[in-house]
């Protein structure tokens, strides 16, 4: 399906605000994907996630397992030649998804009920427990 490119989306601004990263710093070398320990299991490679962010195609990321499989091991951050903290971007995407549910907040009980992947739990806890 053809991707219709629009001017920058609000979601992208939000992702960048939460993560403190500029997605346009990435030049798509693929170092992050090459080194990611989870990439075998992912349906989008980590560099594709950031690419889709650059293109403002947030919906494409929503349907993907990648952000949930990301282990936040920071290998990508350590290796990226452009200093992009991709792990933070992944986290930002997760947070936006979670926040969308209701008022930026999900009680842990509900997360469990909805059978969220473990990583989502950890991600949520990291956010809400400071």
């Amino acid at each position: 399906m053809r991707l219709v490119l629009k001017s920058e989306t609000d979601v992208l601004k939000k992702v960048e605000e939460i993560s403190g990263q500029n997605v346009f710093s990435c030049y798509q070398c693929g170092m992050c994907s090459a080194g990611c320990p989870m990439s075998e299991e992912m349906d989008l490679l980590p560099n594709q996630v950031i690419r889709l962010l650059q293109m403002g195609a947030f919906d494409e990321i929503l349907g993907s397992s990648t952000v949930w499989l990301c282990a936040s091991c920071y290998t990508c951050r350590a290796r990226c030649p452009r200093g992009v903290d991709l792990a933070r971007l992944m986290e930002a995407v997760r947070l936006i998804v979670l926040r969308k549910t209701k008022d930026d907040y999900i009680p842990p009980a509900r997360m469990v009920k909805e059978k969220l992947p473990q990583i989502a739990l950890i991600s949520a806890l990291r956010k809400f427990t400071r």
Partner: peptide
């Protein structure tokens, strides 16, 4: 403009 972005493997429209 119809084109392609081979990095994502997607055709694009602008």
């Amino acid at each position: 403009v119809l084109g392609v972005d081979t990095l994502t493997g997607r055709t694009v429209e602008i």
